[in-house]
Design a protein around this nucleic acid. Structure first.
Length: 911
RNA sequence: GGGAGCAUAGCUCAGCUGGUUUAGAGCAUCUGCCUUACAAGCAGAGGGUCCUUGGUUCGAACCCGAGUGCUCCCACCA
């Protein structure tokens, strides 16, 4: 029965219909069973995020992997979820409040969090809805959020556990301080601006043994002369000859005459400034580290609002910039100032208040990384976890071998609050909740008082205690590092069926920029808490750039509106467009203006749609069911089917191997060309019936079966149009959907090719294609219209090769075919291998064109022969090269010689 | 400053263990076609100093050294 197909694939309605059908049929839901699991956990997008190109690439890749696993008969489980993203979300909420005229500082923590949760309820999860439009086959029964009650508890409990294991400690750290907003800033919130600064050269007096100033001085260079009041050393390079006589001596800080040591460190560069560096541990990141290394005193000369403190001795209560203005003339007056140079440098400004950021020491929480990093490095180096592409192994090793402790506290409210409580004696207690913290405090108190500790006395003492919880939150990554197992409640409910079945997960797909933030830490947490790696393979995607090579970002405004693109081109086309040029780990240029790959994608959809229309047209016109009369005619009739079968199996193997290596864009290119070139351009043309004749039944049935198999191959990449075509090809019983149709395993690929090997069919096919193309080329060059009839005489030593393809050949080039030597004056000639094709036509052949073509070919072959002969006459080549290589060169030589003979004969016949 | 990577057709990229490479694909270009699925198409064609340079080798796009240009990550230099 005839099916009415619309002119185009109507993606807008079809895509959402299919998606709903898949979800309603439960195809994306997974529960443990006896199949092999294939698990992927989504890198949780920010809860308030919206879909951008990065997500699109990342999630398309995951969907391709998951859908392929499903078609391989595995139990595919893709877990969705979102991240609370403390900094980003808090910033958005603060901005929203500011627009309403509410300052965060005017709100209590509770009131702020209420706004934040309202915001999350309103905007959270929009991105997950957008992923549905993209076709992502996520298990919607398993949505997780890093601040779900269970998850929150797991994070807190991991903190307490690591603290009890001695892996979490408190320590001072240099942070970016905003003196205007009086808050700490994360590195991401600091904007560096090019600034024209001045470099002040200051002379420090060197002291003698009694501590008195001598005439000797050492000159340092600084852009912040006001900070000299906090200096606790002067550093020089140990090999610097200019200062060797000063090693171990002391100098006096100008104006206040504090005695500080001269230290040596290779950190100091000899060729910058004066080669001598003042060290101010309290007010400079690097100085702080040097200070730690050399156990220097820390003198903090500033208050939290940027004014000078008592410690400074001078300018107490005055602003840092005022001090800078005042101190320079003072230094000059007293003879300390040697010179002032212009010096362009970068100065950090607060993203929020535009104040110049002040590096400042503060108490933070830390995770000791060394013990966690060692096993996590090992599993990657020994390929228990494989990285694609491998180049990231090096990067990973370098970082893991030089790992620094992880600062996990953030001066934010939105997130997991640090489970530490303080009493007013400077003690702190780490516990899962306030009650437990109080018990700890009570225990300590009773112990100190020497009182008897009983359950009752503890409870009693605890009741009267007042503790204050730490104000800070944990770094977002401190929750997301638990993601691969906690989405299955692996920590909160250890050893449950889900975590046993799904963990370790199969593949993690993520961006290389978070290899340290996230990937490395998940490996650590997985090994620490599940005693197993969290995933077997990590696929690093590229960075999406625009046509000018710029990273796509909101601030540049060069990120296209994805939902609009999906509306216009369809999800399949968008997926195609983004995948066709994105090899693993390589950046991918996405031409937003031209949208060329999107167009290519939608052209491809259209092409397949038209192939479907052709088959439907054949069906309408009736199918010839007559059996072949003989074995010969059976082979001849079925030759295109056998050829395509062979080609298809070859393609499948190639695609499987590419997919196994995560070479997804190449796999897609291979399917694309298999469908467009081999199936549409060659196969369908070869079986196309003559006008007015019905299609042969063997051809029709094979065409449908091949189309189904091609749709199955393409389905992971372009799920919607493939499902639609699959259903349009035939009536299907309920539940017969491409989305879950398990493909034959590679070792089951039945060739069923009678009387020949696949390579025989493939070779014959190549010959046929070559012959057709060559004759068409002659037609073009001789300006023969496709309708002009011609006759071709093939002169060949092995006519049996043409037995099954002769008639197709004749039809494709619109020619009468005969065999034998029948060169005629005025005919054109082409050479395929060592066969000659004489083309007879009623029209006058342009023999100059013919001759030129042949001579060009001849020249090429002669040069080729020359290079091969040269190689073969090189004794050392014959001696050293592998025998098979030499053999091959000999064959190349023989072939070239035969070919040259053929061309010469053809040329001769033209005379 | 430290580390990593890249450089092949106009553009985006393949080219795996050095020898089917006198280097492939897609897009773009050019020519001819409204041929009864598809002009969003069909048919055909042209297009390369494999960044430069030195070396290793019988043999280099591929391995090594140097140079040039670009990109990314980390630390952001008094």
């Amino acid at each position: 029965m005839a099916t009415q197909l619309s002119k185009n694939f109507e993606h807008q309605s079809a895509e959402s219909n299919w998606y709903n059908h898949w979800v309603d049929s439960g195809y994306f839901y997974s529960t443990p069973d006896n199949r092999e699991p294939y698990t992927v956990v989504i890198p949780p997008p920010n809860v308030t995020g919206v879909l951008h190109m990065g997500h699109c690439l990342n999630n398309t890749i995951q969907d391709i992997l998951i859908r392929r696993a499903r078609l391989q008969g595995k139990n595919a489980c893709w877990v969705p979820g979102t991240d609370h993203a403390s900094i980003a979300t808090e910033a958005k909420v603060v901005q929203m409040l500011r627009e309403k005229g509410i300052a965060k500082s005017s709100l209590s923590r509770e009131a702020f969090l209420k706004y934040a949760w309202e915001w999350k309820e309103k905007y959270g999860g929009i991105i997950l809805q957008q992923l549905k439009k993209l076709g992502c086959s996520l298990d919607w029964n398993r949505v997780n959020f890093t601040m779900d009650p269970d998850y929150y508890e797991a994070v807190i409990s991991v903190f307490v556990d690591l603290y009890n294991k001695g892996l979490i400690y408190r320590g001072k750290r240099m942070i970016n301080w905003d003196p205007k907003a009086k808050t700490a800033l994360s590195d991401e919130e600091v904007i560096f601006k090019d600034t024209q600064s001045k470099l002040y050269h200051l002379a420090y007096k060197v002291t003698d043994e009694s501590g008195q100033a001598t005439a000797d001085t050492i000159v340092i260079a600084t852009v912040r002369p006001e900070t000299i009041l906090g200096d606790t050393a002067v550093a020089v390079h140990p090999d610097d000859e200019r200062f060797k006589h000063l090693h171990g001596k002391y100098v006096l800080v100008p104006l206040i005459n504090r005695r500080i040591p001269i230290i040596t460190d290779e950190y100091v560069s000899m060729d910058f400034g004066t080669g001598a560096l003042k060290i101010t541990p309290a007010h400079d990141m690097n100085d702080y580290q040097l200070g730690q290394k050399h156990k220097l005193e820390v003198v903090d000369i500033m208050n939290d609002d940027g004014t000078f403190s008592e410690e400074a001795q001078l300018f107490v209560g005055e602003d840092r910039f005022v001090v800078r203005k005042k101190i320079v003339p003072m230094l000059e007056e007293q003879g300390y100032l040697v010179k002032i140079e212009d010096y362009p440098n970068q100065v950090g400004y607060s993203e929020r208040s535009d104040a110049v950021v002040e590096p400042r020491l503060s108490m933070q929480w830390w995770v000791k990384m060394q013990p966690l990093a060692e096993p996590a490095l090992k599993v990657v180096m020994e390929d228990e976890i494989r990285f694609f592409p491998v180049k990231f192994k090096n990067l990973y090793r370098h970082w893991m071998e030089n790992i620094k402790d992880w600062c996990i506290s953030r001066q934010l409210w939105w997130g997991h609050r640090i489970p530490a409580w303080y009493d007013n004696h400077g003690n702190f207690f780490v516990a899962k909740n306030e009650a437990e913290a109080k018990l700890q405090a009570a225990h300590k108190l009773l112990l100190a008082k020497g009182e008897v500790i009983t359950e009752a006395s503890l409870q009693h003492a605890a009741q009267s205690l007042q503790l204050v919880q730490d104000e800070d939150c944990l770094d977002t990554w401190f929750s997301s590092w638990l993601w691969p197992f906690e989405v299955f409640k692996g920590y909160s409910n250890p050893g449950n069926d889900d975590v046993k079945y799904y963990y370790p997960t199969a593949t993690l797909v993520t961006a290389p920029e978070i290899i340290f933030f996230w990937v490395a830490r998940m490996i650590m947490a997985g090994l620490e808490y599940e005693k197993q790696i969290p995933f077997k393979d990590v696929y690093f995607t590229g960075i999406v750039r625009d046509e000018k090579g710029r990273k796509m970002s909101k601030s540049l405004g060069n990120s296209p509106d994805l939902l609009e693109m999906i509306d216009r081109y369809g999800s399949d086309a968008v997926r195609f467009g983004i995948m066709i040029s994105s090899p693993a780990g390589n950046d991918l240029l996405f031409d937003v203006k031209e949208e060329s790959t999107l167009k290519q994608g939608s052209f491809f959809v259209n092409k397949m749609w038209n192939a479907l229309k052709l088959i439907k047209l054949w069906e309408e016109r009736g199918i010839a069911t007559a059996e072949a009369k003989s074995q010969e005619s059976f082979s001849e009739i079925n030759w295109p089917n056998f050829w395509f079968e062979a080609r298809l199996q070859q393609g499948k193997k190639e695609i499987n191997s590419l997919m196994d290596q995560f070479r997804l864009s190449e796999a897609l290119k291979t399917v694309y060309s298999l469908i467009w070139d081999d199936y549409c351009s060659w196969y369908l043309e070869w079986i196309k019936p003559d006008f007015g004749t019905p299609i042969n039944g063997h051809h029709f049935n094979s065409a449908i079966r091949f189309f189904e198999e091609l749709m199955q191959l393409l389905h992971p990449f372009m799920p919607f149009v493939t499902e639609e075509i699959y259903h349009s090809l035939k009536e299907r019983p309920t539940g017969d959907d491409l989305c879950i149709k398990v493909a034959a395993a590679e070792n089951e690929l039945d060739l069923l090719l009678p009387g020949n090997t696949p390579s025989g069919y493939l070779q014959q096919g190549e010959l046929l294609k070559q012959a057709i193309t060559a004759v068409r080329d002659v037609r073009n060059k001789q300006q023969l219209k496709p309708r002009d009839e011609i006759a071709i005489a093939i002169e060949t030593s092995q006519p049996q090769v043409y037995q099954n393809i002769g008639s197709i050949f004749g039809k494709q080039v619109n020619a009468q075919i005969s065999f034998g030597t029948s060169s005629k004056a005025g005919s054109a000639v082409v050479n395929i291998e060592s066969d000659k094709f004489f083309i007879h036509t009623n029209q006058q052949v342009d023999s100059a064109v013919q001759k030129a073509e042949l001579l060009k070919d001849l020249e090429y072959q002669q040069k080729f022969l020359e290079s091969v002969s040269k190689k073969l006459s090189n004794e050392r080549f014959v001696q050293n090269a592998k025998p098979e290589v030499v053999e091959f060169e000999k064959k190349k030589k023989a072939d070239a010689e035969a070919r040259i003979r053929t061309i010469e004969e053809s040329l001769h016949s033209l005379q």
